[in-house]
Simulated assay, not measured.
Amino acid sequence: MSASERYTFREVTPADLPLLAEWQLRPHVRKWWDTAEPFTAQKLKDTRVKRWIVETTQRPFAYLQDYSVHGWEDHHFFSLPKGSRGIDQYIGEADMTGKGHGPAFIAQHLKALFEAGVPVVATDPHPDNTRAISAYKKAGFEVFGSSQATQWGLILPMKVSSSS
C-alpha cells in the first residue's frame, strides 16, 4: 500500500451494525449525523448506496457511503451528470479526528470513484459543520450554490469533478 493509499475500504456487513450503532451514539458523530434512522440489515440491501468501513493499519475508525444521486428523483443533486455519486462520511473514533484522516481518505475514495468513471462527486454538509466543509475543501470539493433546506436537512452543496 502506498502512502497515498493508506486506507482500506471494506463493504459494511450486518456484522458491522453494532459498531456503527456505537459510533452513532458518540457526541462528535451525533452532532451532525442523523441517528433517528439507524443502520439495519435491510438498509444494507439498498443498491443505490455503497457503504464502507474505513480502516488504517487494520483499525476501523470511520464510515463512508457513496450513492447514486439519480437514485431519488427528488434528490437535490439529481441535475448532476449521469453517473454522478454523492458521499457522506464520519470518523467514528474521536481520537482519530483532527489528524488529517478525513481529507486523506475522502481523496483516496474520490480517486477510486473517478478511476471507475464517475464524472462528478457531490456532498452536502450542514453549513455550520466547518470541520466537514474544511475536510471536503482539502479533498478538492468546491461550494456550488448557497445553503438550502432539503428533506434531509439544511445543506451546503459541494462538488468535485473528475476533470478537476
Rank of each mutant, 00 (worst) to 15 (best):
T56I: 06
P38Y: 11
I133S: 00
A94F: 00
R6C: 10
R26Q: 14
I155K: 05
I106L: 07
T56V: 10
T13A: 08
K111G: 06
L64C: 05
K45M: 13
K99D: 02
K111A: 01
I91E: 13
K82H: 15
R48V: 06
E37C: 14
L110K: 03
I53W: 00
A139H: 02
Q151E: 09
T8H: 07
G98Y: 14
R131I: 13
Y63Q: 04
G145Q: 07
K137L: 08
D16V: 08
K111R: 11
R26K: 14
K99I: 01
Q89F: 14
A94G: 11
H28Y: 08
A41R: 08
G102M: 00
W52Q: 15
M1V: 14
S134D: 01
A94P: 09
A94R: 12
R59G: 01
F105D: 12
L44H: 01
P127F: 01
T123N: 15
I91G: 08
L154D: 01
P125D: 15
A15S: 14
I53S: 11
D66K: 07
Q108E: 15
V118M: 02
P125N: 05
F78S: 09
G153W: 14
S84E: 12
I106A: 11
D95L: 07
K50Y: 05
E93W: 06
I87E: 01
G140R: 00
S147N: 13
I91W: 05
S84R: 11
A139E: 07
V49R: 11
L64I: 13
W72Q: 12
L113H: 00
V120S: 06
V12K: 07
Q151Y: 09
A107C: 02
P38H: 09
S68T: 03
Q89Y: 15
P125I: 10
P157D: 08
P38A: 07
T57C: 12
R131V: 14
A149K: 07
K99W: 09
K31D: 14
Q108G: 08
V69F: 04
A139W: 08
K138Y: 08
L17G: 02
